[in-house]
C-alpha cells in the first residue's frame, strides 16, 4: 500500500519508502515535545484549552494506574504515560493526510515492546534482587522445574503479542482505509475515520494497560 500514497511529507526531507517511519517517529516526538514546552511556560491554576485537555488525559490515566496498581503505581506512571501518549500520537498520525503511522511498521512496535520487556524485568530485578526468580517458579517448589520453562515461554510471548497486536491493527487499518479510498474517494473514508479514531485510541490504551499489568506483576509478591 505504500507506493499508492499520492504525497507524503517525508518525501520533502529525502526519506524513502524503507525509512519513512523514522521521519514520522521523530515528527511524533517533536509534536509531544513542543506541546510539553508550550504548556510548561504558562501553567495556570484554572486550566484552559490545551492544558485542560492534557490534564484530563494524564489525570485520568494516573487515577486508573493508581486504582489498579496501588500507590506504588505513581513511580512507574511517568514511563507508561509517555508510552501511551507516544503511541497515541503515532497512531493518529496515520489518519492525517500526507502522514503515515510509524506503528504500521513492525520495527517501531517491536522496539517499543522490547523496551517494555527490558523495563519490567529491570523493575522486578531492582525490587526483588535475586528473589525475582520466584516469579518464574510457580506456586509451589516441587513444580518449579516444570513451571520454569512454562513461565519463560510465557514471558517471552509478551513482547511478541505486544508487537503483533499493535502492528497488525494499525497496518490493517491503513490498508482498509486505502481500499475505502479507492472504492469511493473522500466520501467513504469519513465514517471510517470515526471508527478508526476510536480503534487507534483503543490500541494505544491496550498497550498502556498491558505494560501496566506486566509492571504490576513484576512489582507485587510472587503468587
Amino acid at each position: 500500500m505504500d507506493q499508492m500514497h499520492p504525497l507524503l511529507f517525508s518525501q520533502f526531507f529525502g526519506f524513502n519508502e524503507s525509512n519513512k517511519h523514522l521521519f514520522y517517529t521523530w515528527l511524533a516526538m517533536a509534536i509531544l515535545f513542543s506541546v510539553g514546552l508550550m504548556l510548561r511556560g504558562r501553567m495556570r491554576l484554572v486550566p484552559t484549552g490545551l492544558q485542560n485537555l492534557c490534564e484530563v488525559v494524564i489525570g485520568g490515566l494516573e487515577d486508573f494506574t493508581v486504582a489498579t496498581v496501588g500507590e506504588q503505581g505513581r513511580k512507574i506512571f511517568g514511563i507508561i504515560c509517555a508510552i501511551f501518549l507516544f503511541i497515541l500520537v503515532m497512531n493518529i498520525m496515520g489518519l492525517v493526510p500526507g502522514c503515515d503511522a510509524p506503528t504500521a511498521n513492525i520495527n517501531t512496535t517491536a522496539a517499543m515492546a522490547l523496551t517494555v520487556f527490558v523495563y519490567y524485568n529491570y523493575v522486578g530485578l531492582r525490587r526483588w534482587g535475586p528473589g525475582y526468580i520466584k516469579h518464574f517458579m510457580g506456586p509451589m517448589l516441587p513444580l518449579a522445574p516444570l513451571m520454569l520453562p512454562i513461565e519463560l515461554v510465557s514471558h517471552c510471548a509478551r513482547p511478541l503479542s505486544l508487537t503483533l497486536r499493535l502492528f497488525g491493527n494499525i497496518r490493517g487499518e491503513e490498508i482498509v482505509l486505502m481500499l475505502f479510498f479507492f472504492m469511493a474517494p473522500v466520501f467513504s473514508t469519513v465514517p471510517v475515520y470515526f471508527l478508526f479514531f476510536i480503534a487507534k485510541s483503543l490500541q494505544a490504551f491496550i498497550f498502556f494497560m498491558l505494560t501496566m499489568i506486566y509492571l504490576q506483576g513484576a512489582m507485587e509478591h510472587a503468587h
Binding site: S154, L160, S161
Partner: peptide, 14 residues
Amino acid sequence: GSIGLHMVSGIAVG
C-alpha cells in the same frame, strides 16, 4: 481484546 493473541503468541514462542 488482548486475550486472543496471548494464547497464539505463547504457542508461537514455544
